[in-house]
């Protein structure tokens, strides 16, 4: 099967006000299949949002794509003209931004903001437009769709705003949705409803997703594959069930250790400190030449300082970049 999105060696940097470039993505490659859901995990600052916005070329002004390619339906999005991009965004590929307040227009009602996205990409009659808007709101707000659609962003709760962004993203029936923490401020019940909405879209229309989250548990039973970013690189990628149940990269393992247990080991939990990954991954403190995780790794070996590991295949579909698994 042909992939719907093919990302090759994507490198992105940000320019500081002094003009110095610092790398945020250091060569990321992966394919997204039609109808596939890829969960992206990774530390704060590891480049997840940078990846999301680069794919549709919505980087902030000081961001630069250094090299790479993003193929969508035979076209390299990184070389598409602004007009071509405008046509693709929203209609074929849509992006749900991490921070709703930065993405919503403050003085337009929620319903109008979704209507405008629809109107920009299709030219149905006014009543068809209103009907479609109503449908999308009903899908995301089973209880008070009308009120929400008539509200301005500041009159909505955090989770309601987040769902308005999702409404915009799915309104035109895109084939790819890139979602940056779309459920971060939703309660568990609403989260589940939302995942069900995405699942339905996938079954009915073959929607493929890149689903960025900091909550690994959310991915189990939802994502097909999990991709783990560290310092702008893919350090582990494999089938969701495998990576979540038995992660192999020391970073992924340590990350999962930090989640507080709720039902297991009860009673003992509360007074103990949660395990954390010591140190930080700020670019300047990264080692030159060695594995980027080496300074913080509890399983480091001498080779880890000498050169950078590359992705090795543990199985046909599970890749890890760690010397422990190199033969």
């Amino acid at each position: 099967m042909a992939s719907v999105l093919e990302i090759q060696n994507l490198q992105v940097s940000y320019r500081s006000r002094e003009g110095i470039l610092s790398s945020a993505l250091a060569g990321v490659s992966f394919d997204l299949m039609p109808g596939e859901i890829i969960g992206v995990l990774g530390e704060s600052g590891s480049g997840k949002s940078t990846l999301a916005v680069s794919l549709v070329r919505l980087l902030p002004r000081n961001g630069e794509i250094i090299r790479g390619a993003v193929h969508f339906e035979g076209q390299d999005l990184l070389r598409a003209t602004p007009d071509e991009l405008q046509q693709i965004r929203g209609r074929c590929i849509s992006l749900i931004f991490q921070e709703p307040s930065l993405a919503l227009h403050p003085t337009l009602r929620a319903g109008e903001q979704v209507r405008q996205v629809l109107a920009a990409h299709s030219a149905p009659g006014k009543s068809a437009l209103n009907e479609r808007t109503r449908q999308v709101f009903a899908q995301l707000f089973p209880e008070d769709a009308d009120r929400i659609s008539r509200s301005y962003p500041h009159q909505l709760s955090g989770g309601q705003r987040q769902r308005v962004l999702i409404a915009q993203a799915i309104a035109c029936g895109p084939s790819v949705v890139i979602a940056d923490e779309p459920t971060a401020s939703l309660d568990s019940a609403t989260q589940m409803e939302l995942l069900a909405v995405f699942r339905t879209l996938r079954e009915r229309m073959g929607l493929a997703m890149i689903f960025i989250t900091h909550n690994p548990a959310l991915l189990s039973g939802f994502a097909d594959r999990v991709l783990v970013l560290y310092g702008g690189q893919v350090v582990e990628c494999g089938p969701a069930a495998t990576v979540l149940a038995s992660p192999r990269h020391p970073y992924t393992k340590a990350l999962f250790q930090s989640i507080p247990a709720i039902f297991e080991e009860r009673g003992s939990g509360r007074k103990t400190k949660l395990p954390v990954i010591l140190g930080d991954s700020a670019r300047s403190s990264l080692p030159r030449g060695g594995c980027p995780f080496e300074p913080r790794c509890t399983e480091r070996m001498s080779v880890c300082r000498e050169r950078e590991p590359s992705l090795v295949n543990l199985s046909a579909s599970h890749e890890v970049s760690c010397f422990k698994y190199e033969s």
Binding site: D187, A245, I259
Partner: peptide
């Protein structure tokens, strides 16, 4: 809220 909690099976030993 409790029913909808996503669960993750954790079969991990503490990192050595």
């Amino acid at each position: 809220l409790l029913r909808a909690l996503p669960r993750m099976t954790r079969a991990l030993p503490a990192p050595e």
